[in-house]
Design a protein around this nucleic acid. Sequence first.
DNA 1: TTTATTACTGAACATATTGTTCGATTACGA
DNA 2: TCGTAATCGAACAATATGTTCAGTAATAAA
Lengths: 188, 188
Amino acid sequence: MDRRQKKTRQAVYDAFTSLLEKKSYSNITVQEIIDRADIGRSTFYSHFETKDELLKALCTEIFDHVFSENLSRERTHDFSGTEKNIEGEITHILYHLQDNRSYIRSILSSESGEIFMRYFKEYLEQIFDGELDRSASDIPKEYMLNHMVWDFAETVRWWMNNVSYSPEEISRFFFRTTLGSNLKKDFS
Amino acid sequence: MDRRQKKTRQAVYDAFTSLLEKKSYSNITVQEIIDRADIGRSTFYSHFETKDELLKALCTEIFDHVFSENLSRERTHDFSGTEKNIEGEITHILYHLQDNRSYIRSILSSESGEIFMRYFKEYLEQIFDGELDRSASDIPKEYMLNHMVWDFAETVRWWMNNVSYSPEEISRFFFRTTLGSNLKKDFS
DNA sequence: TTTATTACTGAACATATTGTTCGATTACGA
DNA sequence: TCGTAATCGAACAATATGTTCAGTAATAAA
């Protein structure tokens, strides 16, 4: 990729995230992003069609990083030899999220949070889908899957504003409150 | 209140909700609301400062209706003689929400959904706050309270798009998946 | 019924934002 | 070095926002 493109993209991301720390998503104008990134107006629009597209791109970039190992392991059907452990995976994801906290906090603390959460849940569905015990319960499995996804996503959202807990603690909270009996293995 | 004001307010609410059924919140312009409500431009702005204020007012109106009995019972410390029953209350709330489904669905199916959910959760916190067993668990009570509020709010959101279940069924789903042991009484 | 008050109207206005276009300039990689 | 590709930025049309104000109509209360 052209060095200039990379530079421009990064400048936009930096400008955008720093603005998100100061004001809400809908109050940020494209012009402000342009000014702060110090790029030409038409340059911005040659990279991103709208402000929403920019946010989407930023979310995708964060999640591709956060979930990279998990999803690749998923795709390769776990031939790695290491036993797949859902609680370990969750903790691992939490560590990645912790690394990106400054970004994520600012995205979450505004209306853009919903967009972030939507993408987040899409990734989480892939993680949890295989972990559900689909036979045991008389509760609809679509409900159960959604339940786990919401619960984890909201746990993370809460965590981002309650920093004092470790990934391990958060993981424990999650597994203690989301019924263990809904998982293939019981973690209660 | 002046009859004209009431009429204007209702016209705006009607125009707004009907627009929400067709397009997303951020794509609705104030001008469209004005045109559909068939009122003067300055009239709208004398009632609502912004589009966000309008949404907020609409949410408040819906929730004041949905939660009216619950909160008044709360406030009067339940001298009504009837035993307070959290599961019954939940089912009752679900019936009210079912009555408003057409409104709520359209609000939820857009970015305005987050605003709706935020207000919804504020009301739910009042309902659940007194029901938590604060001594039993080693999990932070703020986490537990949030957990129950999210879970119920998201259950409702899911329900609004999966109509085929009754309030009683939804109530059961909720109490089966949210650990009963977190409540003062065990409903498992 | 009369009267004072209050709400509504709608045109006009200033301001701001969006997204596009295009010719000129600059940086890139091969 | 040279062709390609990215950037620049001014100018533009198109919309949307929120305010103002003088005129009109409905309302409640006396």
